[in-house]
Amino acid sequence: MTKKQILINSLFTENAVWRQILGICSALAVTNLLMNSLVMGLGVIFTLACSSFTISLLRNYIPNRIRMMVQVLIIASFVIIVDLFLKAYLPNMSKALGPYVGLIITNCIIMGRAEAFASNNTPINSAIDGIGAGAGYALVLLIIAFFRELFGFGSLFGIPVLGQWWTKWSIMVMAPSAFFMLALLMWGVYILQTKAKKI
C-alpha cells in the first residue's frame, strides 16, 4: 500500500468510528460544541501519530506477552504531554476541555491502531495511519457537533448564526441526540459506500 492509500484507507474507507465503531464514548460525549470537538480531535491526531510512530519503532523489541502494557504506557505518556502542554501554553483551552484530555488515554482507536497497524508496519507508515485515523475521528466529531451545536444552541463555534427566532432544541445538547446523530451518520455513510461499490 502506498502512503496515500494508507491515509485514505484509515481516514475514509476503514474510518475508525463509522466502520470500526471505535472511540464511540468520546464521540458521544464531547460533540455538543464544535470547539471542544476540534480540540479533542487535534489531541487525538497528535497522540495517535506519536504513539503509533513510537510503538512501530519499538515493535521488534516489545515482548509479545506484555505488548499491551507497553502500548498503554506509551499512549499515556503522550497524553500527559498533551495535557501539560495545554496547561502551560493554552490554559483557556485546557480549562474548557476539563477531564476529556486525560480520557484520550482510554480512546479505543489509539490501542486499536497500535495493535492492528503499528505493531506490523514501519514507523513512517504507522504515523501516517495514525494521522488518518485521528483525522477520521475528528471528521466524525465535527460533523456531529455541527448539527448538535447548530440546532441545540443556534450557533457555530460559539458564534450565533440562527438568531432569536430559533427555538433551541434542548435534546440536541443532551446525550440522546449524540446516539441519533451517530446512527444517522453511520446509516448515511453505509448507503453511500454500498452505492459506490455497486457502481
Binding site: 502494557m69 507497553v70 504506557l73 506509551i74 499515556a76 501539560l84 502542554f85
Partner: peptide, 23 residues
Amino acid sequence: PVFFMIVITIICVGILATFYHLT
C-alpha cells in the same frame, strides 16, 4: 519482559518528569 518493562517505564517517567519540570 520484566527487564523491558522496567526500562521503558524509567524512560517514559523520565521524559514526563523532565517535561513537567520544564512547564
